[in-house]
C-alpha cells in the first residue's frame, strides 16, 4: 500500500483522475426540510446525552471511593 501510495504521489503518469461524486436519481422525492433543522437535531442529541449520563455521573461523583495514586508499574511511565 505504501508503495502504491508513493507511485500515485510521485511517479504515476500525469492526467486527470475523476473525483467521483454521485448524483441523485432524477425522479427522486424531494428531501424533507426537516432533515436540515440543525437546531432540532443537536438539541435532541444533547437531550439524550443529558438523559443517559446526568444521573449516573452524579452518582459516580457522590459515591466514589477514594481516588487512586498513579501507578508506573507494571506498565505506564
Amino acid at each position: 500500500m505504501v508503495y502504491i501510495f508513493i507511485q500515485l504521489t510521485f511517479f504515476a503518469p500525469r492526467g486527470v483522475e475523476e473525483y467521483p461524486i454521485a448524483e441523485e436519481e432524477e425522479d427522486a422525492e424531494p428531501t424533507p426540510k426537516l432533515l436540515e433543522n440543525w437546531v432540532l437535531w443537536i438539541a435532541i442529541t444533547i437531550g439524550l446525552i443529558l438523559f443517559a449520563y446526568t444521573i449516573p455521573v452524579f452518582e459516580i461523583l457522590q459515591h466514589s471511593p477514594p481516588g487512586s495514586p498513579p501507578f508506573d508499574w507494571p506498565i505506564g511511565k
Binding site: F5, R14, G15, V16, E17, P20
Partner: peptide, 28 residues
C-alpha cells in the same frame, strides 16, 4: 479508506491510477 486513496491521491497530485497500479491495488 484505501479504496478512496486510490482515486483521491492521484486526483490531488494530478496523476492517474494506471491499470498496473489498479491490479496491484486489487492484490493488496
Amino acid at each position: 479508506f484505501f479504496g478512496i486513496t486510490y482515486w483521491l491521491v492521484p486526483h490531488l497530485t494530478g496523476r492517474r491510477l494506471t491499470p498496473r497500479l489498479n491490479k496491484l491495488g486489487i492484490i493488496q
